[in-house]
């Protein structure tokens, strides 16, 4: 069994109020290391066996059509060992 990870992030130019809220909460708790925070989504997809190139193409397609909205988000796909 393999795990495919899809990370979805808002594009840099899109305002991220949730990330901003986290960034302003950190110093209130004494964490002063962060210049900025962006919040994204992570999908973990389990499949039987090692993914074939054809399956990876399908995952890419699903990431583009459903898991992300290309108008405001980018995605990256990788296989977790």
């Amino acid at each position: 069994m393999a795990k495919i990870v899809v990370n979805v992030m808002l594009k840099p130019e899109i305002l991220d109020p949730q990330g901003n809220a986290v960034a302003s909460a950190l110093p209130r708790l004494g964490f002063t290391f962060a210049n900025s925070v962006r919040q994204g989504k992570r999908f973990e997809i389990e499949i039987d066996g090692e993914p074939t190139p054809a399956q990876m193409v399908e995952v890419e397609k699903a990431a583009e059509v459903l898991l992300s909205n290309p108008v405001i988000e980018t995605y990256e796909v990788r296989v977790e060992k």
């Binding site: 109020p17 809220a21 108008v71």
Partner: peptide, 17 residues
């Protein structure tokens, strides 16, 4: 309608959350 690409753009979280 935006997700369907019948209209451009997207609706995101209100700026003040």
């Amino acid at each position: 309608l935006c997700e369907s690409h019948l209209l451009p753009g997207a609706l995101t979280r209100n700026s003040d959350l």
